[in-house]
Each structure stands twice: as structure tokens, then as C-alpha cells.
Design a binder for these strands. Structure first.
Lengths: 381, 381
DNA sequence: CCAAGTTATTTCTGTCGTAGAAATAACTCA
DNA sequence: TGAGTTATTTCTACGACAGAAATAACTTGG
């Protein structure tokens, strides 16, 4: 095997900073990382020599002095695949080094047993791999549930799994490094490294979809605990007059905001089934029952965001997931409710809406694969 | 001035680890700090030579091998003073190196102007300084409100202050380093370094007193923001049927839990004034009105703690402040309510009650002075 | 057009913090 | 009492780092 060069902690931090903030000058990198100009030259050279970094077109920077030569990553030097596994299907994207989706695909699951899931994921990855010939350096798989050490699914209620060494299994099947992670944690990582709020030291993520998810970044690190798969943000008490969720919580996050709950509430009121898009269309057009359901959801979301801002001490919240179209219908009401529950002197809470829909889940999976690749980075000699 | 020796980052981390976790062996320190045995010997020697560290009595450690010589700090090598300033008084303690209170004192404020406060604090410090002759190495001052850079009180509503360079002023008066901090942040620091939960990478603090305070430690660091003085935890919506706070929030944290609100609620019900101790005594003896008020408080506290655990992603909460005696009356009800709002599969939330009362505020002030002293540590040559 | 000034980057070199390895120490146990 | 184990110290080499100087690439004003 080709001899490889150890990358120091400082080198790894440099790579991360260029990946997240590039294009960026050595001078600015020095300021951010607390390294001298000599160190910046020394540390960046191995990356430039091997095609990981490029020097971007020079930018005008104002006053006098030697123009900077900003460093950037070569986004097309590697490909990654991210796959989100649900109870019905595996949905995936193939991405560049910044988790930009270049293609997507989906495979239904023949069953919930490990073999069926591995088969669907493998077939999906094979399909995504056929492309421009760029090497796929890693696969990320995200799943609703608890994951240990990014290797073992310890609990996945949608699949009925306990203690499945999914990463090992997929690595044997595919021959590339595999990283497994809880889906909300993965999505939060994607927002941290590649989202509109990338680089912020603290922010929260709320996902609206089949359930309601909650993620947190604090001090530049995604917060994970043993409970990260349980979805503790999914059952916050938000409306004492709200509907019940399947766990019996009246007016909790899931009861108020999850797609199945919203469509069910309006469906019962109308006496017929409606899908989510229709709910939102009816609300936009002023249908009183639809407005009632979505307004209650808006107030609940506002209360949830205020609680998050006040308790997690963040002033940036990202909304994501396949249900974020709700924001278009009720965003103003949510913001008004947030303001009621927040000290008027407090920093305004900035809401970022990631409207990529279901693709965000798969990009999250790719992001943790990219992060893991950076963590095990070795440069060829 | 005596020539001084620079302390490296590793040396400083070592000192912090011994301060928080001592007595502790070099071998264990090496494992925790990622340093080699050679480095442990090299880094600890300057501290041992100058009396900062001592080698504790050897401890029996089980199996075979050379017995360890645990390192500890010499707690009596320095003294610190911590002062909590309220709208009426300055309350202070003199402490050892681990913020252990050795004496206390209080001075009423002659007024809210800076001169009056500085006079009261200086007099208090002078009184505390007379003692065993050990040098006072620093003063910490904690205050309800916003503090910038641990130097300038940018906002202190109880005193009517804006942008007061309190640290500079007190340093000129007293001739020792002064650190100023928000009172809840200071108390959180004391719990982090010297409390029963010291060393935990994540926990929350709830204080019950004249108001309700909320602090957070995440990834081994106290979370502070520009809003840290506003008390955002003080107005969480907890009980839609609760009383109003002075800001007009129905059933918020302050309305439900703060001492003035509890005594006022029962006082109105009884048609006479009651103090806090009496409220708790009446509740303990089964007085129905007192039980009603404190039970509502208990349920509110339970809901608040559940929200904190779920949103801040902590499984440890410290209760402190002069109002924590409430816990004796309603702790079981609070825990039951917490359980209702928390996934039964989630890690149980551990509640730590710091029953030192008002002394905890002053110890908090001392803790930030100790932490600041460690940050500027130099060793005599 | 050119020299001075400014800011960025590279090169050279010395310093210092680190760990590996070996030595030493202090115990237990058979 | 010697072997084995774990902790700590000593010795020494190595590598990461920054300071200083050199070089580079611009702007600006005369």
C-alpha cells in the first residue's frame, strides 16, 4: 500500500477550516487558527501538492499590499454518498466534498431485516456510483434511532432493530469506509459544515417531517448524548389544547407539527383524507379549517423556537425536513409567538429555512461521511 | 518585580485538572490530558517546587505495582474573596483555592451610585481580609445583569447602571485583580469547578431566589452569550393557569417559582403577609392554601426541568439559590412532573441540590476570581 | 514611470515542548 | 527473596512551532 503521511492536528484543523470557510487567505487562516505565517505555508503545502487544496482566483481586497491567494478545497477531488434509511425506503445522493448533491436515487425496502436493507442500500450506492468516474471515498448512512460510535445501530424502532453492526456489514459489501449516524445528528452536521449557518459556534436545528426532530451545535460541536436517537425534542409540551400524539401527549411538538398529525387533523375535520401539499394549499387559500390547524401549528412552532432559544442559548435556528413548506404558511405567526415568549431586549432569533426537503436527510448522511474522512485523513507520501 | 516563569497551555490544563479532580495520580492525569509520563513529571515539578501542588498521602489502589503519589493543590496557598452585589447590599465570603468559604460578611449599600457600591464592597473586602494573613490573590464580584469581558457592567437593572467599568474602579481601590461577572454565570462556574457535579462536561443550573436564574455548561465550558444577563430562563411558559409576573407573563418561571411571587400568592390568599420560611412551614404542615401554591410551583419546576433536559440535552441539573428549600416541600412532585414530560427510555435526570443558600452566590463570585487567576498564572522563577 | 509603502507569503533557523526508551522506585505475591 | 507489575524519573532525540529576514505583488504619489 502506498506510504502515507501523518497529518498533524494543526493540519487537520487547517483542512477543516478551508473546507468550511474557503476560499480564504493564509493570513486570515493564521488569524483564525492562531498560527504563524510560516506555519500556514508549511501546513498547507502538503495539501496543495496532492490536489486537496487549490488556490482560488485572487480576490480584490481593498487597500494596498500584496494580494492574497485564497485557499480552497478541490470539491471534485472526492465523491461521497449519503443514504437516509426510512421504514419504507433508502433515499440517497452522491455529493462533492462540500456535500453538494450531484445525483440522487431511491430504492424501496423489500423488508426490515438487515439483509433487505443492506441489499437496497448497496444497490442504491452502485447506481449512484456510476457517474463521472470520480472515486467514492465514503458512504454515510443515517437512520432514525440510536447509533453507537458511528458503527452500530443500537435501536431503530422504524426497522425493529437492536444492536446491528451496520457499518461493518456495509463495508464488507461495498469495500469503502462507512459511517452510520442518527439522522437528526447527521443533518445537524451538514448544517454545521455546509449549511447557510456553517461556522456558527452555536445554533439549533428543528426538523419537520414524519416526526419532529431537534439538533444542537454548541461551542462548534454537535451535541450528542446517549439519548440522541430518542428524539427528545419531539414531545415538548406546546399547546394544552392541542391534539394527542401516539404517545398520548396532548399538544406536544409531534402532535402539533408532524406531517401525519397535521394531515390527520384536517382529514378528520373535512371527513376525507388530505395530503400535506393540499393542507398547505387550503391554508394559503384561506380555508378556515386548514387555517385553524396550521395556525395552531404556527403558534406551537413559535413557542418551541422561543423555548429553544431561551434554554439552549442560541440565537440561530435552522428549520429543515420535508415538512418545512409549513413555514411559508405560518412563518409570520410563528415569529410573532416567538417574540411573545422572548425578552424584547434579547438578541433576535434568526430563522434559517433549509428548503431542500428530503434531500437534506441524505446530505446529512454524506456530511458525516465527509467529516469521518477528514478525521482519518492521511496524505500520500 | 520578581522574575516569572511562563506557564504553557499544558501546564495550565494540568493545574486546572488537579484543582478540579485532585487528589489524582500522574498516571491518571496523563490518561486524562493525553500527556506522556515524562511530560507529567516535567510539567508538575514547577508547581510542586513553588508550593502550588502537594503530594497527597498515598492511597491504596488495589492490585500490584508502584503505589501512586497523587497530586493535589495546596488549597491554603491563596485566598480569594467573592462578593455578590444586590440592590440592597454586598454579601461576601473569603475562600480557599477551591472556593471553600472560610468567613463571610455583609454591608448595606448607602445608595445605588457607583461610589456607594465601591465603598461598600471595599469595606467588606477589608473586613474579610483580616484573617489568617494569607494573601488575597483576587476578588470576584457578581451582579445581576450583563457584564462585558468580565470587566464592565453594561447593564444592571437592580442598580440602574449602564456601562460601569467596575473592575478598573475596584482594582484602583483595592490593589488586587478583580473579576466581574453575571451572578448566574458565576454560580454556574462554581458548580462546574467546585460543586458536586464538578468535571461533568454538561449540566444545567437553576437558581431560585428573588428571580429564577438559568445557567448551562456544555462541552466543559459555561455557555455565555450577549444575553447572559437578561435571565432568559426566568420567563419560560410553565403554567397557563398560573399567576402573572411583573412583566405580564402568566405562569412563567418567575411567576411560579420566585420567592416574592410565592410569598405574595399565599399572602393574598391568607389576607396577611407571610415570609418564605413560613410558606414552606405551612406547606409542610399541610395547610391547603400553602400546599396549593407550592404544588403548582412543584409542577412548574418539574416541567421546567424536563424542558431543560430535553432541549439543552443535559442529564444533570443543579438547583441553587436562597430559595432551594422549596425542593424539600415539592421535590417529589417536581420529579413526577419531570417524568411525565420526558421519554421513559431517556437517561434519568439527576438533580443536585446545592443547599448553601445565599453563600452560593458569593462563592460563585470567588470561583470566577479563582478561574481568572488560573488564566493569568505565572510561576515565580 | 519609479520608488516608497503596505500586506502577503516563503525561506531559514533556532527554540521548546513533546514522547520514546531506559532506568529507577515501590509495592505485591508466591 | 526474586519475579512481576505499575508508577515515576531521567535522558535524549525529534518535530512542530514562530521569529526574523527575504521575497513577492500590489497601490500610491511624485
Amino acid at each position: 500500500m502506498e506510504r502515507q503521511v501523518y497529518v498533524s492536528d494543526s493540519g487537520r484543523e487547517l483542512a477543516r477550516e478551508v473546507l468550511i470557510h474557503g476560499p480564504i487567505s493564509r493570513a486570515e487562516l493564521g488569524r483564525r487558527l492562531g498560527l504563524s505565517p510560516a506555519s500556514l505555508t508549511r501546513l498547507s503545502k502538503p495539501f496543495l501538492d496532492r490536489g486537496w487544496f487549490i488556490e482560488a482566483a485572487e480576490t480584490v481586497q481593498g487597500a494596498t499590499g500584496r494580494p492574497a491567494k485564497p485557499l480552497d478545497v478541490q470539491v471534485d477531488s472526492r465523491r461521497f454518498v449519503g443514504v437516509k434509511v426510512t421504514g419504507e425506503s433508502a433515499f440517497g445522493v452522491i455529493t462533492d466534498l462540500r456535500a453538494g448533491a450531484l445525483g440522487q436515487g431511491e430504492r424501496s425496502l423489500a423488508g426490515h431485516d438487515v439483509d433487505a436493507v443492506v441489499e437496497a442500500v448497496s444497490d442504491l450506492v452502485a447506481g449512484l456510483r456510476d457517474g463521472d468516474g470520480v472515486e467514492v471515498s465514503g458512504l454515510g448512512v443515517s437512520i432514525g434511532g440510536n447509533v453507537a460510535d458511528q458503527r452500530v445501530v443500537t435501536r431503530a424502532p422504524f426497522l425493529g432493530w437492536r444492536n446491528i453492526a451496520l457499518a461493518d456489514r456495509l463495508e464488507r459489501e461495498l469495500g469503502i469506509p462507512v459511517t452510520v449516524e442518527n439522522d437528526v445528528t447527521a443533518l445537524t452536521t451538514a448544517e454545521q459544515w455546509f449549511g447557510a449557518v456553517r461556522g456558527r459556534p452555536a445554533f439549533a436545528v428543528v426538523t419537520i417531517g414524519a416526526g419532529v426532530g431537534y439538533g444542537l451545535v454548541m461551542h462548534d460541536r454537535v451535541v450528542t448524548t446517549a439519548d440522541s436517537g430518542l428524539g427528545l425534542g419531539g414531545h415538548l409540551p406546546l399547546d394544552p389544547n392541542g391534539p394527542l400524539c401516539l404517545d398520548g401527549h396532548r399538544g406536544c411538538s409531534t402532535a402539533m407539527l408532524a406531517i401525519p398529525s397535521i394531515t390527520l387533523q384536517l382529514g378528520i375535520a373535512l371527513g376525507r383524507e388530505v395530503d400535506y401539499d393540499e393542507v398547505l394549499r387550503l391554508a394559503e387559500s384561506g380555508h378556515p379549517l386548514a387555517v385553524s390547524v396550521t395556525s395552531a401549528a404556527g403558534r406551537a412552532l413559535g413557542r418551541m423556537m422561543a423555548t429553544i432559544a431561551n434554554i439552549a442559548m442560541v440565537d440561530t435556528i435552522v428549520l429543515s425536513g420535508e415538512g418545512v413548506a409549513l413555514w411559508n404558511a405560518i412563518g409570520d405567526l410563528a415569529l410573532a409567538t416567538l417574540a411573545e415568549d422572548r425578552d424584547p431586549d434579547a438578541t433576535p432569533v434568526e430563522i434559517n429555512v433549509d428548503d431542500a426537503g428530503f434531500v437534506s436527510w441524505a446530505r446529512g448522511a454524506a456530511a458525516v461521511a465527509i467529516q469521518a474522512a477528514l478525521g482519518r485523513l492521511r496524505l500520500p507520501a
